[in-house]
């Protein structure tokens, strides 16, 4: 019995806040087949994470799980039990209020057009700069190579990430 009970909930820490979520097929539950993107957007109401393709091909759903940039549309929520998730809403200090330096750099360089890919690109950039605070331009491009931006804001984005890195170093 304790086995069943133990498996009936998952714990997600999202942007520092801990959520205990029931596993099941009901409307407010997390079904075993729910993706992390779905749980973030539909169950927790964090719509800043975007779903562009829902098959892991465009990068727009990128969030950080234990600091690593992952595609939340091909990650099951139940896999994230006990893990710490950071979404675009969790950036800044305080989160969601004053922008993070990487967000500010995107504002300063108008590093977006329609803005739909922006949360994913910012999260991937954040992960890159945490790991590689002074990246070479080619490292920025490689880190973002899975991100689809149809408006072609790439040039502005690279400038913004490089500027944020320069400021941070």
């Amino acid at each position: 019995m304790s086995y069943v009970k133990e498996k009936a909930t998952i714990t997600l820490t999202v942007n520092g806040e801990t959520h205990e979520l029931e596993v099941g097929p009901g409307p407010s539950q997390v079904a075993p087949w729910h993706t992390l993107a779905q749980t973030l957007r539909e169950t927790l109401g964090l719509t800043g994470t975007k779903i562009g393709c829902d098959h892991g091909g465009c990068g727009s759903c990128t969030v950080l799980v234990d600091g690593k940039a992952i595609l939340s549309c091909i990650t099951l929520s139940v896999e994230c039990d006990g893990k710490s998730v950071t979404t675009i809403e969790g950036l800044g200090s305080p989160p969601g209020r004053a922008p993070d330096p990487i967000q500010q750099a995107f504002i300063d360089h108008t590093a977006f057009q329609c803005g739909f890919c922006t949360p994913g690109i910012i999260m991937a950039s954040k992960a890159l700069l945490e790991k590689t605070p002074s990246p070479h331009e080619s490292e920025v491009k490689d880190a973002l190579s899975g991100h689809f931006c149809r408006c072609i804001s790439h040039y502005h984005v690279v400038r913004a990430v490089m500027a944020a890195a320069k400021k941070g170093s």
């Binding site: 957007r41 964090l46 719509t47 800043g48 994470t49 975007k50 779903i51 979404t87 675009i88 809403e89 950036l91 800044g92 969601g96 922008p99 967000q103 500010q104 995107f106 504002i107 300063d108 108008t110 977006f112 803005g115 739909f116 922006t118 949360p119 910012i122």
Partner: peptide
């Protein structure tokens, strides 16, 4: 002159509402 987009903050903070939001 280059000035920040009026909607820049909501876009970079994930607050801009798109149709599926």
């Amino acid at each position: 002159k280059a000035t920040p987009r009026k909607d820049a903050l909501e876009i970079v903070q994930g607050k801009a509402q798109f149709i599926d939001d």
